[in-house]
Design a protein around this nucleic acid. Sequence first.
RNA 1: GCCGAGGUAGCUCAACGGCAGAGCAAUCGCUUCGUAAGCGAUAGGUUGUGGGUUCGAAUCCCAUCCUCGGCUCCA
Length: 594
Amino acid sequence: MPNSDINSREYLDSLRHSCAHVMAQAVQELFPGTKITIGPAIESGFYYDFDSEHHFTVEDLAKIEKRMRQIAEGNHAFKGEVQTYEGSATYWKGRNETYKLELLDGIKERGETITHYTHDTFTDLCRGGHLESTKAIRHFKLLSVAGAYWRGDEKRPMLQRIYGTAFPSKDGLDAYLKQMEEAKKRDHRKLGTELDLFSIHEEVGAGLVHWHPKGALVRYQLEQFLRKLLDRDGYQFVYTPHIASEELYKISGHLQNYADLMYAPMEIENQPFRAKPMNCPNHVMIYRSRLHSYRDLPIRFAEFGTVYRFEKSGVLHGLLRVRGFTQDDAHLFCRLDQIREEMVKLISLVRDVYKACGFEQVKCYLATRPEKAMGEDALWKSAEGQIREVLETHAKALGFDFEIDEGGGAFYGPKIDIKIKDAIGREWQLGTIQLDFNLPRRFDAKYRNAEGGEDFVVMIHRAIFGSFERFFGILVEHFAGVFPLWLAPVQVKILTINDEMEPHAKELFAALKDGGLRPDLDASSDKIGNKIRNATLEKVPYMVVLGPKDVAAGTLSVRLHDGRQVAGITRDALIDKLQQEARTMSLSPVITPS
RNA sequence: GCCGAGGUAGCUCAACGGCAGAGCAAUCGCUUCGUAAGCGAUAGGUUGUGGGUUCGAAUCCCAUCCUCGGCUCCA
């Protein structure tokens, strides 16, 4: 029997899995001839995949839900029964459930016990994990219908998947639905239009992003911020071309291994060229353009490198999955014995960058040597040992969690994927740090060692934001469009009470701008209430309401985005405070009501 | 790429075989106002694109482009 603690994950999964069974019953009753396949509990609910002549619509979901409630109220027990292969096969053959027969064969092959679970009139081939009865299924909702391949294989039939969720309590369900609403409100595509941050145009092409002035300003701040840190850490910036002869990608191996992700060649004077899918080969070209001594290492090349990758049309998604994007890319060229030190620096850099952007929860996933890998054992052992040590000590000290994925690395070297949690608890992968023993060999990238011989250099690929597009999209959602002062495209908006205020407002505007801030001015003849409303919708962090009383008093009235107000602050004090807040990359307002 | 749903004014949407409309935004007036929507007027469209059916197409059909929900979570 499943855990009866209704707060346990086990109970939640049984509830949802049971709910999936009830849904399958309802669907088969309402749409006879529908074949059932699988219906597991998932992270946030459950689904069931059906093969049906009928195309399920959103309207059908209400009907199915209604029938599900009737079934659930019937208080039917879930009964498990061990079956012989023959018995089970006869049952499913009789019902023409071809998918179940296929699953059954799989179970037999693996030598597992065959069980059927029945409630009311519905029986499923199922390994179990159910409630005692349907009665506890009360707080559920069907959410959407979508296509899904049988067994996730695009060569197999396309099934119809109905998603739903269920909770032990009404509060749980309501909280979940509210969270979905919240995610919807924060959607960077929606906010991107509303806040005039970016656009994507049919005339230009899918997955190709246009940064509008306000979005570009945010990006510029990110770029400047990162440049400073990279300078601190000894990086050198480079620029490389956006197209390259196929020759380059033959040497790098991309043409042989990653042709799917590259765009078709363009012919230039009988030579095939390609749009750049990654920056690494170019950076290696710079590295090996001259001889390097072991004393010169590590050499760190950074580039905000724009690359073009072919993504299938169906997977494009706002800024999060695009076809042209700019990576905050860098390649470190070092000796094997320098990996540890570079990793320490990298981890600290990652922490500094994420912290300034409000991401405190960071988790590293180290993927180690896979079965098929290139490079000597000693090379891998040394590299992995150094990385592990850094994760166990340095990363841990910075508060990073980490997990090890044994054998999950690339054939060319171990890697660390770095994930963060956003303001509403969603996990995103941002950065990646990958060691590469392969590319230096393909390009014959070496250095002169202390003994006068030559060694292959070790290459570290790394990105912290990942890409500016994706990172910006995640930031918009993380902050729900309300950027902290250091990133906000407009930092202070001056709102005039009446037309007489305009000269004073212009003076204030100039003073703020001189102070290195990003002000905006609304001197229209709208009422103050409307101006506040507009500035709030624009998600400007600070407003200055400027009227005759302020001019008379020689001070300012400030309103924060969240509605709090501060009166009687002098102009210089305001500028000073804002500069301070922007400079320290503070994530919360420094000006607060006393 | 595949399954499904969509594409109408800058934005959000209506009209669903019979004159293409509203709200917000914009522009021009009036209003000069103290913390989330003051009033009026004007302008704005080859209904994604191309083809077809029809006396007549935003609406029906075909093609195409784009957008959205999904396509790992193995009874």
